[in-house]
Amino acid sequence: MNKNIPLTFGPFVTYELYSQLSGIPVNTIKDYVNKGRIIIKKKALPREKPLINMVAMLELAAKESNEYLR
C-alpha cells in the first residue's frame, strides 16, 4: 500500500505536540516510549530532546490497518 498521506506537521514532533495531536497526556507518552509503543528518533547525544518519529508511526499504523482489513 503506497498511498500519499499529507502531513500537517514535520516528520519529527516533540512530546508536547504529539500530546496535542493525539490527546494523550505527556506522561503517558513517555511511558509508551519506554515500553516501545511510540517510536522516537535516535538521539546523537544523550541530552538531546527526544522527538517522536511520525513517519515511522504512520507506517506502523498503515501496516496494522492492512493486517486488520485482510
Rank of each mutant, 00 (worst) to 15 (best):
P11Y: 06
P11N: 10
P11L: 06
P11W: 10
P11D: 12
F12P: 01
V13P: 01
V13S: 01
T14Q: 02
Y15I: 09
Y15R: 05
Y15M: 07
Y15T: 05
Y15S: 02
Y15E: 04
E16C: 02
E16P: 03
E16S: 05
E16G: 04
L17A: 05
Y18S: 00
Y18E: 01
Y18K: 02
S19R: 08
S19A: 04
Q20Y: 14
Q20K: 12
Q20W: 15
L21D: 07
S22D: 02
S22R: 03
S22H: 03
S22W: 01
S22M: 05
S22Q: 04
S22P: 04
G23K: 10
G23C: 05
I24C: 01
I24T: 11
P25V: 09
P25M: 06
V26W: 09
V26F: 07
V26R: 08
V26A: 00
N27A: 02
N27P: 09
T28W: 06
T28K: 10
T28F: 07
T28Q: 09
I29M: 01
I29L: 01
K30A: 08
K30S: 05
D31Q: 11
D31V: 14
D31Y: 15
D31N: 11
D31A: 08
D31H: 13
D31M: 13
D31E: 12
Y32S: 03
Y32D: 00
Y32A: 01
Y32M: 07
V33R: 04
V33T: 11
V33K: 03
N34K: 15
N34T: 15
N34F: 13
K35D: 08
K35T: 15
K35L: 09
K35Q: 15
K35Y: 09
K35H: 09
G36L: 12
G36A: 05
R37D: 10
I38L: 06
I38Q: 02
I38G: 00
I38E: 00
I38T: 10
I38R: 05
I39H: 12
I39Y: 14
I39N: 04
I40M: 03
K41P: 06
K41R: 14
K41V: 14
K41N: 10
K42F: 14
K42M: 13
K43H: 11
K43Y: 14
K43N: 10
K43W: 14
A44N: 14
A44W: 15
L45D: 07
L45I: 13
P46G: 06
P46I: 15
P46S: 11
P46A: 11
P46N: 12
P46M: 12
R47F: 14
R47A: 06
R47D: 12
R47W: 15
E48I: 15
E48W: 14
E48H: 10
E48A: 04
K49G: 00
P50G: 04
P50A: 05
L51F: 09
L51D: 03
L51P: 04
L51E: 07
I52A: 02
I52V: 09
I52M: 03
I52T: 08
N53D: 12
N53H: 09
N53W: 12
N53Y: 10
N53G: 02
N53Q: 06
N53E: 05
M54A: 03
M54I: 11
M54V: 14
M54N: 03
M54R: 08
V55T: 13
V55P: 00
A56R: 12
A56K: 14
A56W: 06
